[in-house]
Design a protein around this nucleic acid. Structure first.
Lengths: 338, 338
DNA sequence: CTGAAAGCGCTTACAG
DNA sequence: CTGAAAGCGCTTACAG
């Protein structure tokens, strides 16, 4: 009981497979008699024909498959990215195949190989540190690739990022203007450029400030975030902090840090003010509404797909990098003034 | 600059494509001379050959692609499911292609069609209400499909679920034993069996109880959850509830409800006790640790893939349904006793 | 030990 | 208006 092919339709209709292919693809130019046309549609319907895209792909060299590589699809930020990409992709007739790199360069490379063997028409990737060569190889063979969320220093490849440094600088200046006794930056130990940019933005604002303010950095690894953050905050904050600001450079870090505040009954913003990168539903459970930096995820997704589709369809190889603006969403977690 | 094919290798090596295919696939049985073998590998290496899986698929009728349809990949529960499925799939050499149904039967059907045209070897789906016929059609043509999280009444199809009714009943009995004045069940207006099962379990425990206890149901739609829950809780709970228990039948509902409690400064468990289905990192930001029902996601994923792979490889069509046990994780949000 | 050949299900110039 | 034929890149009996 094989699935029916156009050959079966052709036989049943008494025409050639070419004719069947033409009418099923509604190709203009090749005009086919209305009767033949109708008959073919009817037969296709009754024998329940569905096209075999694999066969089509082999011939046309297009699979309508897009590969998506994120750090971890179970991470809230990436699952939202994925969802938006999915919708945009579907709109253009693409389907998404996904993989998680776990920030591991080897795994990242394996995934690109796997996807390329599956003949995906293009890839959207959040590159990991150490994947420079893999990306360069892809560019060399002109494989359509677009980076998202991140970029790699020195690798000229189209992609979407946000203005990490600018928004971080802007936000930090705001903090500085509020005369905190102490500002604590909580970020990652990492070589990932988009995260370093957030740190640079922070540092830049600090350097250009005239007011003296006590600054601390808490940099944690990519694992065991919650515990690390708790230990560090305990050391730095103690149980009764005053007039302090906490700057979290990701939602994961924020959740870790906020849970420390809740558990120690530290009042926001009375004792400690908080601002965080990225949003998460989790903020809803915190007693104070959190001020956060919002990434334009929807726009990122649609631009990424547009950029990729452009490469695929027109073989454009501009090294276009698009930078979108993040937005500071002000809520109660930042003290209103001095 | 086309990508090299085995034909290119064959030409370069002065052998037939058949020979190249044999050595590249390391087929035993067909013994190929060690020299030819080495030469072929070398050439493949230098011209940077990578196999075209599409061509292979056309011939072998296996794509090593698995379709995953969830309600929404950006939902925390499903993104975790997806991640675990991804890992298990990769282990068996499969790649995941994903789609979100948005609980929409039409979209669900479209996705199954799309995936089947892409010739996925099998599908893992969270069926939506109204998709009975789609599923039955798939079974009729013996397409390997496994349901996850949910099942559809009357549709005999292999799948993984958890013991929703039992764990709900068990949990409710525990609530009842604690002599609350009022127990409020917060669930969905839905026809989805797995959610109804949670409700039946609750009702069953209530009916079999000897103690009289005031019971309320809050059933919300699938959209605007937060607002609906807030409005309903306000009506039912007021600002100063006493000795009340809240039972949330999903993590989304729980987040919505807990945020109401936080905003109104209602103490957990002093005034209100809480138990919720499913976990989420968000609980970390709530002042009290939340008692929740934990689904064995990892096991669900590995069993699903195993079941699907079984169907694919052996054409097993047992209507095997696997039920796994959820677990009540006790934390401070449930008052300790009377 | 190796090759010629058929075929998977399509598409698409080309010819008539 | 329609068909014969080649070909996409593989696999796999079969023959030698």
């Amino acid at each position: 009981m094989k699935r029916p092919s156009i050959k079966d339709i052709a036989k049943l209709a008494g025409v050639s497979v070419a004719t069947v292919s033409y009418v099923l693809n509604r190709k203009e130019g090749q005009r086919i008699g209305e009767e033949t046309r109708k008959k073919i549609f009817e037969i296709a319907e009754t024998i329940n024909y569905t096209p075999n895209k694999i066969a089509k792909s082999l011939k046309t060299n297009k699979t309508k498959l897009l590969g998506l590589i994120v750090a971890d699809i179970s991470n809230e930020f990436y699952s939202h990215i994925a969802r938006n990409l999915e919708d945009e992709a579907l709109r253009l007739g693409y389907t998404l195949i996904i993989g998680s790199s776990d920030e591991n360069a080897e795994k990242f490379t394996k995934l690109t190989e796997l996807f390329s063997e599956q003949q995906v028409d293009g890839m959207i990737v959040a590159p990991v540190s150490g994947s420079e060569k893999t990306l360069e190889d892809l560019i060399k063979i002109k494989y359509p690739v677009v980076t998202i969320d991140r970029y790699l220093k020195g690798v000229a490849i189209p992609g979407i990022t946000i203005d990490n440094q600018e928004i971080a600088e802007h936000t930090t200046k705001l903090l500085i203007s509020k005369d905190f006794d102490k500002i604590i930056y909580i970020g990652y130990k990492t070589e990932l450029t988009h995260l370093l940019d957030r740190q640079y933005g922070f540092e830049k604002a600090v350097r250009s400030s005239e007011k003296p303010v006590e600054i601390h950095y808490l940099l944690v690894g990519l694992e065991n975030i919650a515990r690390e953050v708790h230990v560090l905050l305990e050391k730095l904050l103690g149980k009764a902090p005053e007039n302090t600001a906490l700057y979290f450079s990701s939602n994961k870090l924020a959740v870790a840090g906020l849970s420390y505040l809740v558990k120690n009954n530290i009042k926001v913003p009375e004792q400690v003010s908080v601002v965080a990168f990225d949003e998460t539903d989790a903020y809803d459970l915190f007693p104070t509404e959190i001020t956060y930096i919002q990434q334009p995820i929807e726009e990122m997704a649609s631009e990424a797909i547009k950029l990729l589709d452009g490469q695929i369809s027109n073989y454009i190889t501009t090294e276009k990098r698009i930078t979108l603006s993040a937005k500071l969403i002000s809520k109660a977690s930042l003290k209103s003034s001095v």
